[in-house]
Write a protein that binds this DNA or RNA. Structure first.
Length: 346
DNA sequence: AAGACGGGGGC
DNA sequence: GCCCCAGTCTT
């Protein structure tokens, strides 16, 4: 297609210099792709650099602890990515002698590697003609061909794949994939697309039909639910307590202050009852409501209240799941941004 | 097929 | 306030 040549030419003149673009090391390609899942380049950049310095090869990642990797990942979100990064590093080190497989079926079975990431690794590291289909590409193809199928419906995926499978023929796969994503990110943007700068605007059916603003079509998502978190900053002799989140829930395997979740906001008068019924608190303590915070996630709104609980000795409800940490020395624990912000505000 | 899963940035 | 981002996994 004449489309493709124009896009490739545009890319060669306008691409951003990014660290993962100057390597074909499958390890670094993989690492960058995991970091960039649902994450903008500017947000992931510093994390990539940090990880490459600390873990230059996959074996370094494999021999690290999950907790250390979560700490490195702190603030980036979607922590399943970090846990899967660790799992896959160990699998490749243990079962593949540290050599990345160059096979779609094998790659896409590894934890955290789906269709997009497998295709990215195969094209960028091994030069194989697997087109990537990410948010940028969905948008670009939707507009270029004026396709009004919802992009977040699984059954429509193949329609876009078919288009890409034709377009990628005869190109250098890595250049093709970089080019379509870059064009989507820099020119064919969600809002205020820069059609005047677009190398294929003369072929763009959405532009011709005046439907650019309606595309891509997306099924709307549910509005976030609200949760009430009561966090306890339990002070005792220059220490406080952290607890690991083990549940299948947000922030799995990160640490937080001891938590009582409630159905509604709890005021200062009723909190002692809740403490008694939740943790059977019997010892002497003093309680003060410290601060409140609203923490927005894509699917939940957390309304957090921080309570300061002072006790002269170790409180009687503290058990072995509580990590007693020094006021000055908690920074090795991975914590959600919500907790990090609170601790930094002290 | 639909939800769950974070956090930051743009407007 | 709403939408988006180099998606994947579980139900």
């Amino acid at each position: 297609m004449e489309n493709v040549l124009d896009i490739l030419l545009w890319y060669k003149k306008n691409f951003r210099e990014l660290p993962w673009r100057s390597t074909q090391d499958p390890y670094k390609i993989w690492l960058s792709e995991i970091i960039l899942q649902q994450t903008q380049v500017v947000q992931g950049l510093s994390y990539f650099d940090k990880f490459v310095v600390k873990y230059p090869e996959i074996k370094n990642l494999a021999s690290a602890s999950e907790e250390e990797i979560l700490k490195m990942w702190q603030g980036l979100g979607y922590y399943t990515r970090a846990r899967n990064l660790h799992k896959t590093a160990r699998i490749i080190s243990d079962e593949y002698q540290g050599i990345f497989p160059d096979n779609y079926m094998i790659l896409s079975k590894l934890p955290g590697i789906g269709d997009y990431t497998a295709s990215a690794i195969l094209s960028f590291a091994f030069g194989k003609p697997y087109p990537v289909l990410d948010g940028n590409v969905f948008r670009l193809i939707s507009r270029l061909y004026d396709i009004h199928l919802p992009v977040n419906e699984a059954k429509n995926r193949q329609v876009f794949k078919n288009v890409l499978d034709e377009l990628i023929v005869g190109t250098v796969p890595s250049e093709f994939n970089n080019a379509i994503m870059e064009l989507g990110a820099l020119v064919c943007r969600p809002e205020n697309p820069r059609c005047k700068e677009c190398p294929v605007s003369m072929h763009c059916l959405a532009l011709k039909n005046g439907t650019v603003d309606m595309l891509p079509v997306k099924l709307k998502k549910n509005k976030p639910s609200i949760r009430h978190f009561n966090y306890f900053y339990i002070r005792e002799n220059n220490h406080f307590y952290l607890v690991k989140r083990e549940d299948k829930d947000i922030w799995k395997n990160l640490y937080q202050l001891p938590l009582i979740e409630s159905d509604s906001q709890i005021d200062e008068k009723s909190m002692p009852q809740l403490l008694a019924s939740s943790w059977a608190v019997g010892c002497d303590y003093s309680l003060k409501r410290q601060s409140q915070a609203r923490h927005l996630l894509s699917h939940q709104t957390i309304l957090a209240t921080f309570w300061e609980l002072h006790s002269k000795d170790v409180p009687d409800f503290v058990n072995e799941t509580y990590k007693r940490v020094n006021l000055k020395n908690y920074t090795k624990y991975p914590v959600p941004v919500l907790i990090q912000n609170f601790l930094l505000s002290l």
